[in-house]
Design a protein around this nucleic acid. Structure first.
Length: 556
RNA sequence: GCGCUCGUAGCUCAGCGGAUAGAGCAACGGACUUCUAAUCCGUCGGUCGCAGGUUCGAAUCCUGCCGGGCGCGCCA
């Protein structure tokens, strides 16, 4: 029995109690959840439903709990229900009901953990979005890991997700980039406001290789070539390093297209229709203060140019027109000042900012070596890049390290720790479970231990303490994925995997939990039942690591 | 000044309004003739920044204060 099934059993029991007693059924929530109590004395699962409903129903919680306990106790698979404290229901399952989870997981395979909690939601997820003026730097790396994991988690929860990378290959940043390339190709030092770093020389050389006559051109033509080819090469490189990192986007969206298609004007017109546009000092403004922003924002400057914010408005509108009802944007902490104007802008379009626009802020990341944050990259000079990260830790450890923390806490990633092969390195701890489960399955096959057909699975044999703990941890997986999706916090998945890993390692170390017989001992039904549990663990660990974009190795 | 955000064990961090707040590290002490010891077990460790409020119940929600980080342009 999964926690989800138990929860719905609790809810229908509550409905039955309400009906028999003639209570108002509308007081019942649409869904409820059971929780895993910390203390084993409180049963396998606990429900607080009676506490929540006592007041609404006008019945003392303990009395309601008693009625619920009686009703629940009659349900199949439930061994006992106790009332504790002010009205907690402490539920114990029959060993067989708990153990069946192992079989359910194995049979569900890669689908285990998928739910329909976000079914019908169309979510646009924008992250990284670095302009092609240099390699992806450290802030983008965090979002590459977290954003990609989130997209997978959202999909597992049943949402339709479009991932998106927004960039701009025009404007002064890119001009500086082009001028830096040009200077480098001519053997001159970088312009004062230009970009430094070894990568500029590399790209400049590559541009010259692709367009050998570029230095013979006049300056405007040469700059145009460096601009065009340089952006192309830089962007190809960004995409490649992201691909190597396991991250690909459904859409790479160029801001230029918004301009070319007249979408800024369209957005402005739309906002004007909504009555939020005004003219002042020769500029065109959006009255964002009407929806809580600090100050009104200029869309079109007095010189006739559009502002960056105007493009933001057009881009938002574009996403909405493409059918996304939730626009999620992941930004670095240095951009959190944008939240107010973005939310207000959404409201100016007539949307509900609480529903249609979510802005997630990620705090800073440091890559730490010998206790000191690394500040300089070998290649980029000024900042640490995605490649630096992967060179230092490898893809798996980088992704895991970034995805296991809440995005709103600043983190230090210690190179020594994340490359160590030990308990203190969470990614090794979890991956080691994958390797152990695989190895055990091999050994089982060698010793003639097989799962057999599902109908022969003896779930009640998985009743030891370590087997129980492992089953319960595995049972939390679907809810955890759903919650991670709901909260946009993939780190919950990583934390559960670590908990499962701990439970598995304890199971493994328990001499009573052997999957293969020792020495000449005969194969028993217990070995076979534990092989189901072993394989169920492997399934969940592999699925969970998959959501984080981390491999589940067969051997370490 | 205004806004956002964080404050939980010595350190790094989990923690869905629920019961006696948890992990890892560090410190100390144990377990390999054993399916991989990259593992496991034990001990030590708390004013959940402070003060109010809401609630049957608050680390969690609200308000104020203190402390850290960040942001506040007709820049991109």
């Amino acid at each position: 029995m999964t926690p989800a099934k138990l929860a719905s059993t609790v809810l229908s029991a509550a409905r039955a109690v309400f009906e028999t007693r003639g209570l108002d059924v509308s007081a019942l929530p649409a869904t409820t959840a059971v929780e895993r109590p910390r203390s084993p004395e409180h049963g396998d699962y606990a429900s607080t439903l009676a506490l929540q409903l006592g007041k609404k129903a006008g019945v003392p919680p303990r009395e309601l709990a008693a009625a619920l306990a009686e009703e629940l106790g009659r349900q199949p698979g439930i061994k006992s229900v106790e009332i504790a404290g002010p009205g907690f229901l402490n539920i114990r399952l029959e060993a067989a009901a708990a153990g069946l989870l192992a079989r359910d997981i194995v049979l569900a395979g890669t689908r285990f953990g998928h739910t329909d909690t976000l079914a019908g939601e169309r979510i646009n997820l924008e992250f990284v979005s670095a302009n092609p003026t240099g390699p992806v730097h450290i802030g983008g790396v965090r979002w590459a890991a977290v954003g990609d994991a989130l997209s997978r988690v959202l999909r597992a929860a049943g949402a339709t997700v479009g991932t998106e990378y927004y960039f701009n290959d025009a404007g002064s940043q890119i001009d500086r980039f082009a001028r830096s390339l040009y200077a480098s190709a001519k053997g001159e030092p970088a312009p004062e406001d230009g970009y430094g770093g070894a990568y500029i020389a590399e790209i400049a050389t590559a541009v010259v290789a692709e367009a050998p006559d570029v230095l013979k051109l006049g300056e405007p033509e040469a700059l145009a070539t460096f601009h065009r080819v340089g952006v192309e090469l830089m962007f190809a490189e960004i995409k490649q390093s992201l691909t190597e990192f396991g991250v690909e986007f459904d859409t790479y969206f160029n801001e230029k297209d918004l301009h070319d298609r007249g979408e800024l004007q369209e957005a402005l017109d739309r906002l004007r229709e909504q009555g939020h546009i005004f003219e002042a000092d020769g500029a065109t403004w959006l009255r964002t203060t009407e929806f809580g922003d600090d100050k009104d924002r200029v869309l079109r400057k007095s010189d006739g140019d559009w502002t960056y914010f105007a493009a933001d408005c057009a881009y938002y509108l574009d996403k909405r027109k493409r059918g996304f009802d939730r626009v999620v944007i992941m930004l670095g902490a240095d951009h959190h000042g944008y939240i107010g104007r973005m939310k207000a802008m959404s409201a100016c379009f007539g949307d509900d900012p609480a529903q249609n626009l979510e802005i997630l802020i990620g705090q800073l990341v440091n890559l730490v070596r010998d206790g000191e944050p690394m500040r300089m990259s070998k290649r980029a000079g000024t900042v640490i890049t995605l490649e630096d990260f992967v060179d230092a830790l490898g893809v798996d450890a980088t992704r895991y390290a970034l995805a296991r923390y809440s995005s709103d806490s600043p983190i230090d990633i210690d190179i020594e720790l994340w490359t160590s092969a030990s308990r203190e390195n969470p990614v090794y701890y979890v991956q080691y479970v994958a390797a152990r489960t695989f190895n055990i399955a091999l050994n089982a096959a060698d010793s003639g231990v097989t799962r057999g057909v599902p109908g022969d699975f003896r779930a009640e044999l998985l009743s030891g303490e370590h087997e129980n703990d492992l089953l319960k941890a595995l049972g939390e997986y679907p809810d955890t994925v759903a919650r991670a999706a709901q909260l946009r916090e993939p780190h919950h998945v990583a934390r559960l995997l670590e908990k499962i890993a701990g439970a598995y390692h304890r199971f493994y170390d328990d001499p009573a939990c052997r999957v293969t017989p020792k020495g000449d001992e005969p194969v028993t039904e217990g070995h076979r039942a534990r092989l189901w549990l072993n394989d169920a663990t492997r399934t969940v660990i592999a699925n969970g690591l998959g959501l984080l974009g981390v491999s589940a190795p067969e051997r370490m």
